[in-house]
Design a protein around this nucleic acid. Sequence first.
DNA 1: CCAGACAATTGACAGAGGCATATATCTGAC
DNA 2: GTCAGATATATGCCTCTGTCAATTGTCTGG
Lengths: 290, 290
Amino acid sequence: MLDPVSRVRRFNRAVTSAVGALDTSFLGRGRPLGAARVLNAIGHGCSDVAEIRDYLGLDSGLMSRLLRSLEDEGLVETTAHEDDARRRVARLTRAGRREFSAYEALSNTQAEGFLTRHAQREALLAAMDLIASALTRERIALDEMDPRSDESRYCLGEYYAELGRRFKQGFDVSLSRDPDAKDMRRPRGTFIVAMSDTLPIGCVGLKGTNHGYAEIKRLWVAPSARGLGLGRRLMDATERAAHELGIAVLRLDTNSALPEAGQLYRTTGWSEIPRFNDDPYPDLFFEKRL
Amino acid sequence: MLDPVSRVRRFNRAVTSAVGALDTSFLGRGRPLGAARVLNAIGHGCSDVAEIRDYLGLDSGLMSRLLRSLEDEGLVETTAHEDDARRRVARLTRAGRREFSAYEALSNTQAEGFLTRHAQREALLAAMDLIASALTRERIALDEMDPRSDESRYCLGEYYAELGRRFKQGFDVSLSRDPDAKDMRRPRGTFIVAMSDTLPIGCVGLKGTNHGYAEIKRLWVAPSARGLGLGRRLMDATERAAHELGIAVLRLDTNSALPEAGQLYRTTGWSEIPRFNDDPYPDLFFEKRL
DNA sequence: CCAGACAATTGACAGAGGCATATATCTGAC
DNA sequence: GTCAGATATATGCCTCTGTCAATTGTCTGG
């Protein structure tokens, strides 16, 4: 009753009944739940039929029937994939987009209702992020994105806020050597964001320089996603990108107030080197040859 | 994508698919999921058919059929309720108890698996408690229990630990006037535990004295259950119990390091009075006439 | 060009669950 | 005591959900 296992089981029971109620609330638009879920998946950008199936965990037979019923309603149209005529691609029609927005509004109202019904709003959100990250760890996608995108800027904002909390003297980005966005775009460098579903939960930048090496900057993993090995995955992806770009030497700077970062670098083939810049914040410097 | 609403929706999606996987793991014992859920509900102590239906949120028709199929398997037997022949009561047979333990073992293994797969174990458990409490706030039951029961002692342990964290000088229960268990049993007093499913999430003691008043002691609400109005519910229940016991005057002591408690008392009809005991910890004293 | 792999579809079927109705029982008003 | 209405469970009928196997058309490597 008080042990961890029963706490997990209590959570499972609570969520099982809540999710049941949640699902059925999608009704009321005169459409079975399955069809509504497919419509939403398409609206959220899944176009490949196989991709939708995978996302929703549906059987191929069921998927096929649901898609057919949406077509009959005139909400969706499917065409053959341009490269492979076996595969089919689904797209919303005008009426489909209208229905999709109606579902979106419904979902949003529902989520807002949940938030306003409960106190401890920030704690609740943090708990939800943590659990969602743990449950979807297999599905975290690393996407190269523009460093000025909404997702990237969100990550950087969280990163700066965390440095501010962890450095004794705080952190003021204008005093640091803030990398120029153009140095973190191909072909000079890149910027990678870890997305768990729709939430950015980590990032890393590869910044090209004119000094014969590239720098790794802004490695950040959301608190809710720590312990999932995401930092290492981000670093691996960056090294692969650097390799593709023909970069042979990587450098980075960090601070001893971030011990988990130093630990990561030391165990993944980086060697400590003397200070190579005049940024006031870092006190540890590393290099790795690919 | 970064706003609270989409964080809630991300959580919903993550949990929807996880719960699906969880549920289907109950298959493999050659029994449809619905029947397994009913068997488990009965095993967990639900006996009244209506109670099971309510707990699992099932339609009465479906419930009836599931129960019938469990009877046909010889796992369950039903009899008419002794006071009301319309109602039926379900009980596990010997074979039913065996099946139930098999499901219990499966659930436990699964929950353990979840815990070992993930880092941040304590953070994850705390997050699960918080969300489970928020989702089941309508179902929190206040049960009078013996102050020496496992549930009561768990609550008291958490309560002392929290005082230790919040009082500058710490908290040592042996220095405080620890109420005797026998003063918190009927007819001198009582002890009430708030249960959310199987987890104790709050408590309060009513301690009888020989001085013409009773004292309210050990009011505690788990961090995961704050903001749900549980403190007030516990106080109301205690006042009702005191009224039943013919107690006309209540007193309590508290500490200004627990501002939310003082706030609760002040807004629910308690008046501050001078110190009435020599306990070293409290610095605020209240009285309420019923 | 052909065999095997692969994507989508189709048919058959069982479980999940809603809804209206039937049956037995209880409760309160008369 | 009787009767109307409420309540608890059971039954029939239907749709939706989801699985499995077989089929059709398409792609890929040898």
